[in-house]
């Protein structure tokens, strides 16, 4: 995978495929981006597990936090990394030690380690780096346009509302179905 630019279809398939997400480096401080992402993904229907040794046993954004990836009690589909680029190899190593293997390792805006990405991909894990899943979800669902952000997508298909609320959209936008 070329990690300079990802096709929208690659990101969309990841975000509509994964159900459980571990956020490594999730902060309990509500002003931090990692807190925002934890809360936002949970509100979009993902089962989110904050991972932060300092918060183990406590709640982060209302969700039980764990000390390590290995402590998370359910299979993890995606590991989202809020750690500096030089710490990514260690997180990848911990992720690759999980059974079952996660499907995706994702590193946040500004976080990129190509060697660690190659290790993960060699083990059959998909990698996204230097992106934010909150921004990508909002971009591909159409939510981000509410804030005047250029989603770089156009579509004549109707966006799908998510759940009960009026201000949440689904990442999936099916075309007309045949009956």
């Amino acid at each position: 995978m070329n990690h300079d630019q990802y096709p929208d279809a690659y990101i969309r398939a990841i975000l509509s495929g994964v159900k459980t997400v571990a956020i490594v480096g999730a902060s309990a401080n509500p002003a931090r981006p990692s807190f925002f992402v934890t809360k936002y993904l949970a509100e979009r229907g993902y089962r989110v597990f904050p991972v932060n040794p300092g918060q183990a046993g406590k709640l982060v954004a209302g969700l039980p936090a764990y000390a390590t990836l290995a402590d998370v009690p359910e299979p993890i589909d995606m590991v989202d990394v809020f750690r500096a680029s030089e710490h990514v190899p260690q997180v990848v190593e911990e992720a690759l030690a999980l059974t079952p293997l996660p499907k995706v390792i994702w590193t946040q805006l500004g976080v990129r380690n190509d060697a660690a990405a190659a290790t993960a991909e060699a083990a059959g894990v998909q990698v996204v780096m230097n992106r934010c899943p909150k921004i990508e979800y909002a971009r591909l669902s159409g939510e981000i346009g509410w804030t005047g952000v250029n989603s770089r997508t156009i579509s004549a298909r109707r966006p799908q509302r998510l759940g009960q609320g009026v201000q949440r959209l689904s990442i999936d936008r099916p075309g007309p179905t045949r009956t």
Partner: peptide
């Protein structure tokens, strides 16, 4: 808290205005 995208009050943002914003940005 700026933690999610959405509409509150038209002085801050409005869905019609938002279409104009995204269009000119594009």
């Amino acid at each position: 808290g700026l933690q999610t995208f959405g509409n509150i009050y038209t002085r801050i943002g409005n869905p019609t205005n938002a279409v104009l914003e995204e269009r000119v940005a594009a």
